[in-house]
Nucleic acid binder design. Structure first.
Ligand code: MN
Ligand code: MN
Ligand code: ZN
Ligand code: ZN
Lengths: 140, 140
DNA sequence: CACATACTTTAGAATAATTATAAAGTAGTT
DNA sequence: AACTACTTTATAATTATTCTAAAGTATGTG
């Protein structure tokens, strides 16, 4: 049924390994998210709006949420938060850092920041990861 | 009218300098937040529930939100986010770092972390602050 | 102290992000 | 082609938050 030729194999594989059948809607969402050079930082509403704007037949809200959640659970997306009450997702799943610049989010590669001193984990715990947010403001 | 003797002066002052009249509800909220040794990290819902649980006459939701927002605008509270979609507030307004331990938030004093290498701000911007989150997990 | 007035409290409605429901449609299998 | 489990979707429900407007109160003035 799917006209999903081998050029979509990489996206189909992401979906299958997330436990999802590669339906047209899901392949398009996955392609939109991962078929790009630069990291994408997005909310589900933003994703829905930017994809549906160009479409005559809209993909439903629930499908966007379901697909994003499954990709996140499978480890293909990372969730983070700004200081408003919406979830953001990051297509860069490696441990890395961010500039927060008036609502804009910019990646900082992990090796651009190194530590001289770091505290130890409390007893019974260990460090999972260390992530830095550098908040920016206008110059003068 | 207020039975607010001088033992509440410090809280009344915080409210006044936040542009708020020191009503009984506001003084109690402010006292609850700042009359303690250790930093408090909280959501408005948590604050409301823990204060109202012990009260016969409940303080309304809107009053909690208004008071917290005013204290935040005046710089007496800092806002931050976890990976769910609610705003958290921090009574520690200094620039500092955190452990995130399964939903629990623990302060790390600023001087416990120092950097060896940090990126520069993009052109036209400058660094407002640098904050680190150390995510923890169970030991083995 | 007595009033006036601007500010406050509150219940309840409204909004925004997200999750749940269940009926109609489709993918993968045989 | 037919079966069945999984999906899509419209719509309802939920949660956190903000708004509204009516009733109540803090504070300055006489
Ligand atoms: Mn929410
Ligand atoms: Mn919200
Ligand atoms: Zn990123
Ligand atoms: Zn803190």
């Amino acid at each position: 049924m799917q006209k999903n030729n081998n050029k979509n194999k990489i996206f189909i594989d992401k979906l299958r390994s997330s436990g999802l059948r590669p339906t047209n809607q899901r392949v398009e969402i996955t392609k939109f998210l991962f078929n790009r050079k630069k990291t994408l930082h997005f909310t589900v509403e933003e994703l829905k709006n930017s994809m549906n704007l160009k479409r005559s037949k809209k993909i439903s809200t629930a499908t966007f949420y379901n697909t994003v959640h499954a990709l996140k659970s499978a480890g293909y997306l990372k969730e983070f938060s700004l200081e408003n009450n919406t979830s953001y997702y990051d297509t860069n799943i490696s441990s890395h850092h961010h500039f927060f610049d008036n609502g804009k989010v910019i990646d900082i590669k992990s090796d651009k920041i190194t530590f001289q001193k770091l505290p130890e984990a409390p007893k019974g715990r260990k460090i999972k990861n260390v992530e830095v947010v550098i908040r920016l403001e206008n110059n003068n």
